Simulated assay, not measured.
Amino acid sequence: MQGIFTVSLDFELHWGVFDKRDRQQREANYKNTLRIVPQMLELFSKYDVHVTWATVGSLFAANREEWETFRPSIEPDYAVEKYSAYKWVRQHGMDSQYQWAHFAPEEVAMIMKYPGQELATHTFSHYYCLEEQREKMAFDADLKAAVKAAEKFKAPMRSLVFPRNQFNPEYLKICYDNGIKTVRSNPDGWFWSPVTNGGAGFMRRVFRTADAYIQVGGVRTSYPLSKIKVTPGEPLQLPASRFLRPWNPKSELANKMRLRRSCQEIRIAAQKKEVYHLWWHPENFGDYPEQNLQSLEVLLKEFKKCQQKYGMTSWNMGEYDQYLVREAAPKAVKQADKVLQ
């Protein structure tokens, strides 16, 4: 078999931070993010990299009126009210002057035009799956709303990324029942284990930051196909490997260390014929777009070298379900090996 390079993106705009940030202060970031989506797509096409765009379903709408037709019939009833996107909208509104913060139908349509790019779901409302909430059917209703919104683009929602990496195994069956075949799970290491909002303590944050530059905790980032968890009646669980941190204007040394580490990890995955799963938010590129695009191209060039030297290939998240038999892990790996030979 060959090594596999996978990229998944959490595409959110303001839906990802409405409970933390002021949208007016994020205007330049969001507009830059929308501007560079075509540039990212061109880069992925140039280097033949398959990508899953896990997109908040609300971005599919063209305006507030269409958003209202998509929204779920049941809202989450969080114990912490500020986590509800719907209560936020009722309080702050979505005037047309803030179109760039809430909707991106043109960019979503563009994703669908590029081979190897998968449009997937990041839930409809950036739903928090580890936060306490009292409405039992709200998550199911949220996914149904995401699926309904995606019908506008004739895009079945087959892959999912849990917002804020709040991976919750109790929700896997609901995902599967709504057509989700693959979900992203968290990287190895105690500092990447799922936590609630505000649950990441100081040491956890320190280790996450340090891990981008140096080896900490003895955690390997690539893994064999046999590590992908296959359970009948549930989606495949595809672990993330590395969060791609954005370009740092304060330290060129940190930028070099970060890229060197990721390039090395891609090479190791190619040599060991393992999976390497890189992820980030398009918004992470919004503050320094040109520098971040240059950094991305460094990594894509490394993949291309590994493709030429070791035969490494690229799959989006949905392609794992296509190639892996979902009955038992050993059988899944055997089938994938046949496809890759």
Rank of each mutant, 00 (worst) to 15 (best):
D177K: 15
N178T: 14
G179Q: 09
N186A: 09
T182M: 15
R204P: 00
N165Q: 03
P169W: 02
G217E: 02
A210T: 01
N168V: 01
Y213M: 03
G179K: 10
F202Q: 00
N197D: 00
R184M: 12
G198Q: 05
Q166W: 05
G198N: 04
N178P: 13
K181S: 05
S185M: 09
V206I: 11
F191Y: 15
N165I: 01
V206D: 02
F202K: 01
G201N: 03
T209I: 07
W190K: 14
Q166D: 03
Y176A: 14
T182S: 14
S185I: 05
S193Y: 07
K173R: 15
P187G: 14
D177N: 15
Y171R: 14
S185K: 06
V195N: 01
P169M: 09
C175P: 12
W192G: 02
N186T: 12
P187E: 12
R204W: 02
V206C: 07
G199Q: 05
A200G: 04
R220V: 02
A212Y: 01
Y176H: 15
A200S: 13
F167A: 02
Q215F: 11
W190G: 07
C175Q: 11
Q166G: 01
N197P: 10
I174P: 06
T209M: 13
K173F: 04
T182I: 13
Q166F: 08
D211Y: 09
E170C: 03
N168M: 03
V195W: 02
W192V: 05
D211W: 06
V206Q: 02
G198I: 05
E170F: 03
N197L: 04
F207H: 05
G217P: 00
